[in-house]
Nucleic acid binder design. Structure first.
Lengths: 147, 147
DNA sequence: GTCCATGCAAACTGTTTGCACGCGC
DNA sequence: GCGCGTGCAAACAGTTTGCATGGAC
């Protein structure tokens, strides 16, 4: 897998070690189109037959964040969601009914927001744009439930 | 105080009771230009001579949220910040050094983001725009520290 | 007087950490 | 074999909850 090479390089360059656990955490995030939380990664890792603890999941996620391979987002909830680092800036939408987190392309809006912050005198490091509401599917289902 | 009338009306209309604790929590949030977390509200309430428990702070904040008088935000941290409900949509900036949370007017950007989400087929309930980085003051101090 | 709101402490959730063992190098 | 990485359980922070007492109405 190509991405493994990134991982190997990144880990080696820091004098860290490549372990099955770290590999798998990254693979799981890459394979998933969803934005998983730590517990979901943990369950998926176990279901792939790896003996692993939740503590290691957190430690691996933290390392991968430090390496820049993974990003953490807090969508107004009390726990984090993780995704592999994306190329361009993008926004997220969380469905309040089914909980799914979807990505949204919004480069212009995010760039405008960054410029707006700089204009106000801040050095802007990060811009987070998060929408919440109801996805198409859930809107339909809600219509059926309450005619 | 005018805002107390809002509180009284809102609470009465739900058959709830007006207590010194609830009044004070709202007052503290109104008086503060910062975006306080639960513990900060707790400390301020105690410093105003009210005997109160942290549990009550949380319960009051939750009630005020339900009444629509207060909003909770999670700025990528593991704990919430609270503010009285504002008129228009606005963004927030968190300084990564001093932790201060500042409001930012950005109605056009937020409106554009909402429209963007609706165009993608979502019913958008909320838009959160959050910037983080370094405030003017901290930029200066950092310059002095590392010449 | 009724019943909701409070204080207290204990429970709970997501996350982090100390320690002894295991495994990548 | 050296030393980082791991599993386990305990610690931790923020928040919520059960229960008996207190106060708004």
């Amino acid at each position: 897998m190509d991405a493994d090479k990134y991982l190997i390089d990144a880990i080696r360059s820091q004098g860290r070690r490549l372990t099955r656990q770290r590999q798998l955490v990254l693979e799981i995030l890459q394979d998933s189109s969803e934005h998983l939380d730590a517990d979901a990664v943990y369950e998926l890792a176990k279901s792939r037959g790896l003996k692993v603890s939740l503590a290691t999941i957190y430690r691996s996620l933290s390392l991968l964040k430090d390496l820049g391979l993974v990003e953490e987002h807090r969508f107004g909830e009390d726990h984090g969601h993780f995704e592999t680092t994306q190329d361009g800036p993008h926004a997220h939408f969380t469905c309040l009914r089914c909980g799914r987190v979807v990505e949204l392309e919004a480069p212009k809006i995010i760039t405008a927001a960054r410029a707006h912050g700089e204009r106000a005198g801040f050095r802007v490091v990060e811009v987070t744009l998060h929408l919440s509401g109801y996805c198409d599917e859930c809107q339909n289902e809600m219509r059926e439930e309450q005619p």
